[in-house]
């Protein structure tokens, strides 16, 4: 939006803001983003607090949901026929995939709806709009941490001891966050314009679970589909999580490269698109 340049000479010590039609393809205005950093923190806090207000279990839900999902799928597949899990116990294998998947799906749906969900804010108060998808992508990280605590319990139960690879976990969390932010920029900006997004998004997220190796290992994907499969960033996130958490889990990191490219393009494109749409958010929302 506008450039916040602190020009102290022309007006004593007062900050000077020039309001004008925005130009430029990728003017991120990081200065205002930094200025409003407390708002990011407080919005994350709001999202987390509101989510578990007036619930009996409170934040325990963040653990209960993935554990319950894990139990359901484990039970279903023990009746329907076994799915290979690359050596480790299926519950551990499944949960290591559900962990990032719960984050990705949460971040996508909350990030996607972040602008429309806070429409009154957008039409009434100024702050860098980027803060909304950004904080909505960060809030589910709290749930991820809690769900991870449950995973520690699961590993203890199955006597799975993690190796030094677990130190690389933040890297894959970062990848998941970057991907969901990139997608969230597109989705949230499109959502402002087209309310269709609200209907399409849950379907896409549901589809996402099946085109990512959550319930099954990558080895089950037919060879001819692998090239296309490698473009899905969630594949890299899930494989990374399993590699970091399950000892002896084998991953071919070369397969990660296409999806990293996808995330990069999505992010740059998303930032440009978001910035160009931003100027009309308040008028259209």
């Amino acid at each position: 939006m506008s450039v916040l340049n602190v020009d102290r000479r022309s007006a004593g010590m007062l900050p000077h803001v020039r309001i004008q039609p925005s130009r430029g393809l990728l003017d991120l205005d990081l200065a205002s983003l930094w200025h409003y950093r407390e708002l990011i923190y407080i919005l994350v806090w709001r999202d987390v607090t509101v989510r578990y207000k007036q619930t009996m279990l409170g934040v325990a839900w963040a653990m209960f949901q993935p554990v319950a999902t894990m139990l359901i799928f484990t039970a279903v597949f023990s009746v329907m026929g076994k799915i290979p899990s690359d050596g480790s116990p299926y519950p551990v294998f499944l949960y290591a995939g559900l962990l990032p998947w719960f984050y990705v799906s949460q971040a996508l749906s909350r990030g996607g709806a972040s602008l429309v969900g806070d429409a009154p804010l957008i039409s009434k108060v100024y702050f860098p709009r980027l803060i909304l998808p950004l904080s909505a992508t960060m809030a589910p990280l709290v749930d991820l941490i809690l769900a991870f605590v449950a995973f520690v319990g699961l590993m203890t139960w199955y006597e799975v001891v993690p190796t030094w690879r677990v130190l690389f976990l933040p890297l894959f969390v970062g990848l998941a966050a970057t991907f969901t932010l990139a997608a969230g920029l597109w989705i949230s900006a499109l959502y402002v314009r087209y309310r269709d997004v609200g209907h399409i998004l849950p379907i896409l997220i549901q589809l996402g679970m099946f085109v990512s190796p959550i319930l099954y290992p990558v080895s089950k994907v037919p060879e001819s589909w692998r090239a296309l499969y490698a473009l899905n960033p969630v594949v890299s996130v899930v494989q990374g999580f399993r590699w970091a958490l399950i000892p002896g889990f084998q991953v071919d990191f070369v397969v990660f490269l296409p999806s990293l490219g996808v995330v990069f393009v999505l992010l740059i494109g998303g930032l440009i698109y978001f910035r160009s749409m931003e100027r009309t958010f308040a008028d259209v929302i």
């Binding site: 939006m1 506008s2 022309s10 007006a11 007062l14 900050p15 000077h16 803001v17 020039r18 309001i19 004008q20 039609p21 925005s22 806070d118 009154p120 804010l121 957008i122 039409s123 009434k124 108060v125 100024y126 100027r279 009309t280 308040a282 008028d283």
Partner: peptide
């Protein structure tokens, strides 16, 4: 002036911190 929406043309220079109460209780 409170930077919620952009002008199509023209400029405005603002010296100092702006707070706008376009609707109390927003947020």
């Amino acid at each position: 002036l409170s930077r919620i929406t952009q002008p199509t043309t023209g400029t405005a220079d603002i010296y100092g911190r702006v707070s706008s109460l376009l609707e109390v209780g927003t947020g």
